[in-house]
Amino acid sequence: MALGKNELAELVAGDIPDGAYVNLGIGQPTSIARYLSPDSGVILHTENGMLGMGEVVPDEQADWDLTNAGKQPVTELPGAAYFHHADSFAMMRGGHLDVCVMGAFQVSAGGDLANWHTGAADAIPAVGGAMDLAAGAKQVWVMMTLFTKSGEPKLVPACTYPLTGKACVTRIYTEVATFHITPEGVRVTATYGIEADELAAKLDVKLLF
């Protein structure tokens, strides 16, 4: 069976090393936080200036001076720290973040990431911190569906959308398979509800099993 969104979030959470400093991108990656065990010692970084971010809270419990990168109200955990934006991005660019998990429109077999602009004429581009994370985090993981709504693969030989970063993605988590991008090529590390030959037939990328 293909993984549900929550199962996928739980899977990613389980792969994050204990004690890691981690940035979770806006949208679906935010849900990974729910599956991080308190014993793991994982510390969440939010680009708007905080380490030790807690969970998203309902609006009626909101402190609007305490929000995540998606502008949702969150909590602070014991040991939290606040800092300004230049310091927050220095943490990324300086290579201090262990893992960041982002969504994607496309990832190439070489680890190029496209997740900020569809290139459509009437689209309003918005990049936020994605390029800085792609350039700075020690490991960039992508969490996405493997196919678009119309069935096009999002793991591709070369991205057709404008890039966010070059050769930066090391792992891809999808509902039907997980991949490691290695110097030897794209290695399938697990499949869910799909046979290896069927997966290989659906992707225009050479896979290692």
Partner: peptide, 14 residues
């Protein structure tokens, strides 16, 4: 619109 990556926005002002 001049679109600037968020960290560059901060660092360019810094």
């Amino acid at each position: 619109l001049e679109l600037v990556p968020q960290g560059n926005l901060a660092e360019r002002m810094r």
